[in-house]
Design a protein around this nucleic acid. Sequence first.
DNA 1: TACAGTTCCTAGATATATTAGGCAAACGCT
DNA 2: AGCGTTTGCCTAATATATCTAGGAACTGTA
Lengths: 196, 196
Amino acid sequence: MARAGLTAERVTRAAAELADAVGFENITVSALARSFGVKDASLYSHVRNLQELRERVALLAAEELADRIAAAVAGRAGKDAMVAFANAYRDYALAHPGRYTATQAVQPSPAVLAGSTVHVRTVELTHAMLRAYDLVEPDLTDAGRLLRSAFHGYVTLEANGGFRHTRDVRRSWERSLDGLHVALANWPAKDPCPLH
Amino acid sequence: MARAGLTAERVTRAAAELADAVGFENITVSALARSFGVKDASLYSHVRNLQELRERVALLAAEELADRIAAAVAGRAGKDAMVAFANAYRDYALAHPGRYTATQAVQPSPAVLAGSTVHVRTVELTHAMLRAYDLVEPDLTDAGRLLRSAFHGYVTLEANGGFRHTRDVRRSWERSLDGLHVALANWPAKDPCPLH
DNA sequence: TACAGTTCCTAGATATATTAGGCAAACGCT
DNA sequence: AGCGTTTGCCTAATATATCTAGGAACTGTA
């Protein structure tokens, strides 16, 4: 019998594809083994267990997402950069729902995380996107959190069918980005106006 | 042997508590049966299957969340209403992580959904919260989506440990709400300013 | 008290994760 | 080519999960 030629990388990649096809929470070692034409137990030579497999998919997806965002933001500033960041984020999430879910559903263990700089990169990309808005800490952190939240919330709700209204989602998204831009460009002073 | 006195409601309620304790995706029929001191199969007289159990928990949580929001928003308008809505939302999600996840992870089947008006109520509450901002369609829908996204994204990232920065999360949240208020109060015109 | 409906049980089929231990293919070296 | 070592994949077995079928026991009611 010829061997299947498994490696941790190939297994992870197949798991990511499976996740996009059937949903991240539905990936199983069994299904993965079937797709390779091997027995379940064979995968355990390459991946410690299901948990680690999920973490690897999460890390893979986080790297891919950061790559897309980096490419989109490069050479842009201000609203342009923010919109490019947002669209790269949303496009990836909609094109790879399983992978995207992985980035949120799993916080990789320190061991798996050690080999990657993706977390730092993401923070740097967020700061780069916001640079032209001239925010200083702690406003920078606060604004970054608001944007990440809005992006994540939007694509999650959209992917889960949370937007049932007939209003076109794409246009709605663009208008939301306009709204976020207004918030960033007029980021409120420390003590919010007590009159409103 | 005295009977356990199970009903669909009691089972659902116990499942919701279990979800808050161990995470929504970790609730099992077996664990639930153990907590009642009955056999697994006994639960199937009250709930069709695991899927339906999850849908029931999701519906229960959605009702509870809507109740909290309704109480918070009552008698408030403008930014006051928006902040009250947001805090009720976040407080519920942090206090009941399993239930909150259920509201997002499951879209109840038409059958389960039929007996409830929670979806309509939620839309109405959102519109009520936004009333004082004087938005007209489609801006109303767009702004509502942005807010829901930001709220959902924020509490999800917060609950998953996505905010590792030392910055105080509670204050950061309040500042994000200030930012959203700015966006709503200055909601951009149809054609966004092409200069930015 | 007998009937009817419901609650809960036993037993079993199927799927999954995971471990232990073994055989044989591939690799490195002489 | 021949040798040993590593490693890939296997068989076998265990534990836990969902879910079904069919039966027994409890409940309320006529």
